[in-house]
Design a protein around this nucleic acid. Structure first.
Lengths: 363, 363
DNA sequence: GCGCGGAGTGTAAGCGCTTGCAGTCGCTTC
DNA sequence: GAAGCGACTGCAAGCGCTTACACTCCGCGC
């Protein structure tokens, strides 16, 4: 073997000790200087920082974790990594945490068995992370409790547990806004898509439905139980649900609890030669990227921001010293905003108009 | 303070030492027994495993990492966490790695600056993970090299670096298949959407274009340069590109290099009252969940599998002892498959038919 | 009957940091 | 002018594992 082997010379890592020697101080001082701790003379800190910079020193995370008992890591647990909503939440979490110097571990809780495994104390999430963001996982409230007991900060998105920071859309208000929009157009025969639960238990549908119905009642309108059709939160569910609604005594307007379901609903309409917004109005929630392709009226929320807000609140909780003593103020996270985005998938009752097409208008 | 404080009694963690004491062996034996190392009597192992189980012992990852120099962690670096394609790749990676007992760290390389920061050796990815999956990040080839130099396994998705395991769709063949499909329908005036590069450099477009053109040449068809329009890989890009194509001497069929772009293209068509598959045929790539909503003909690939395959190859490389010695066989990953999914967004040249609608047929 | 080898186990030295505690030193404070 | 006090810094003890090496048996071969 010659020495010019491509794999040779894995550069020896520079340790804190090297920095200490070079800067002519103790390792303790290096550690303090580099982490901005007090009680380091400005001149010393300068020197240490310079040396560290010059040597390209960076502390070994594993050693730091072991010694300090902090991991500088955040875990994001989501029901399904590949879905539009969750991946955007994760994107928000990642952006904030990485920015703050935290590593982000992701866990997909696709199968119930994986949630169980996490709830089992042995998952030892507490040794892996300083904080956990639980996204739409009410089934995991046990998990949350056990984490908190072990001094791991918890923040949630889409549901609440205890008084930990939570980013939760005002779902009843969203439901009400959707209702208001449809009612305002004169619709009185209303349908709802997305009322029931996934294997992964959502609290969201129930809340949106409640707000929707309450608003209807203000107009003296009742939503018949047969007109509330569930089917998960995905496209196929929306398609199937709309098919059911159309089968018998179809409503003139439908509230789909997510854009993905709304897309499925539109599909079912088109298949029958019905024009959204003319024959049947459809309103969704999310303002998914494709909503404006199919001209879907929807209630916009900023999903990435939701994740980011949760992450910020989580980091605040982690860094709040009171957290450790158990009497921390519940660090409340910002409440997400939402707004109606009107497009052509909704329209006035009996609004049949020849010039109306499914065409798009780009922003 | 009474003792029934909710926050009291953080249960003392059980350490390897406790297991050792309880099982009446040394910590070394516990370590060996639990990790399935040889030179442990079957009876001893049993006992140790039982005790560990009973005590709910789980090694502290930080300590294990520090001592062993392995992290049992994999990093997934993707250009954008929120996008459909990448989040599904990540889902595949996560599923495989979690299954194998590895933690998965995600990093979004949205901004070029973040890539730069990673390339800087100081990111110390090597101390954070045993392996890294780089998804569609040719700009990061330096990063890859430096990782390998530091004994971190590397696998890629969508591009190759050195002879490390890579999951790369046969893009020229995909391009050719798309061309074949359109040519077969009699189209000769062809357009291409997606030819150029994102800020994040893709190699993919070029390869698909090459295959597309070669196939065309076999039919004696030439694709005019003006008919090759770029615009990122997202929906808006597709919309804008189609608008350009339609502006002057429109093609009768268009190959969009991703479904998202194809959706944008469809949008541009509808806006002009043109019917996809009748007035202009459009074919995409991916078989995105929504492709069948809009009846988009596409070339399907299984994105989750791509991620999973990369992860499997990465883990194999990590576990292959030869990796450390530098003379490992390049662990080749499986090649992804793809197939044409014909829907109504493509149709024969001059196929104007009154009975043709944009309706959907569910599988 | 003695030496040997291998299986099984224990000892102890780290891995590279963090941090409580104990100085050291130069100034105030009475 | 002695005691006290802060501001800095260093010492050294871990953090909870892994693993090289040493050791103890026990069965076998000659």
């Amino acid at each position: 073997m010659s020495t010019d082997d491509t794999n040779g010379e894995a550069p020896r890592r520079v340790r804190i000790e090297d920095v200490a020697a070079q800067a002519d101080v103790s390792v303790a001082t290096v550690s303090r200087a580099l982490r901005g701790l007090p009680n380091v003379a400005a001149s010393t800190r300068r020197r240490v920082v310079d040396v560290a910079e010059q040597l390209g020193y960076q502390p070994d995370p594993a050693a730091a974790r072991l010694a300090a008992g902090r991991t500088n890591t955040v875990i994001a647990i989501v029901p399904h990594l590949g879905s539009w909503y969750f991946s955007n939440v994760v994107a928000g979490i990642e952006a904030v945490c990485t920015q703050a110097g935290y590593d982000v571990l992701v866990i997909g809780a696709d199968e119930p068995s994986r949630v169980d495994r996490l709830i089992d104390e042995r998952a030892q999430l507490d040794r892996r992370a300083d904080g956990v963001v639980l996204v739409d996982l009410p089934v995991a409230s046990e998990l949350a409790e056990s984490l908190v007991r072990r001094r791991v900060a918890v923040a949630t998105v889409g549901w609440r547990v205890g008084d930990h920071p939570a980013v939760v859309l005002d779902d009843p208000a969203v439901g009400a806004l959707a209702a208001e929009h449809l009612l305002h157009f004169g619709h009185r025969d209303l349908g709802v898509i997305g009322g029931d639960l996934d294997p992964i238990a959502f609290e969201v549908p129930e809340r949106r439905l409640r707000g929707f119905r309450e608003q209807c009642q203000r107009y003296g309108v009742d939503v018949a139980a047969e007109r509330i059709v569930g089917g998960g939160f995905r496209l196929d569910g929306g398609y199937a649900a709309m098919a059911v609604l159309l089968e018998h005594d179809p409503p003139t307007a439908v509230f789909a609890m997510s854009d993905e379901m709304a897309f499925g609903a539109l599909m079912a309409l088109q298949e029958r030669g019905l024009t959204p917004g003319v024959d049947v109005s459809v309103i969704g929630v999310d303002d998914h990227e494709f909503a404006h392709v199919v001209e879907l009226t929807t209630i916009r929320q900023n999903v990435v921001d939701n994740g980011a807000a949760a992450a910020r609140a989580l980091l605040a909780a982690i860094q709040d010293p009171r957290t450790t003593t158990g009497d921390a103020e519940p660090a409340e996270a910002e409440t997400p905003t939402f707004s109606l985005v009107a497009r052509s998938s909704t329209g006035p009752l009996n609004g049949h108009r020849a010039d109306r097409t499914l065409s798009s208008r780009l922003p």
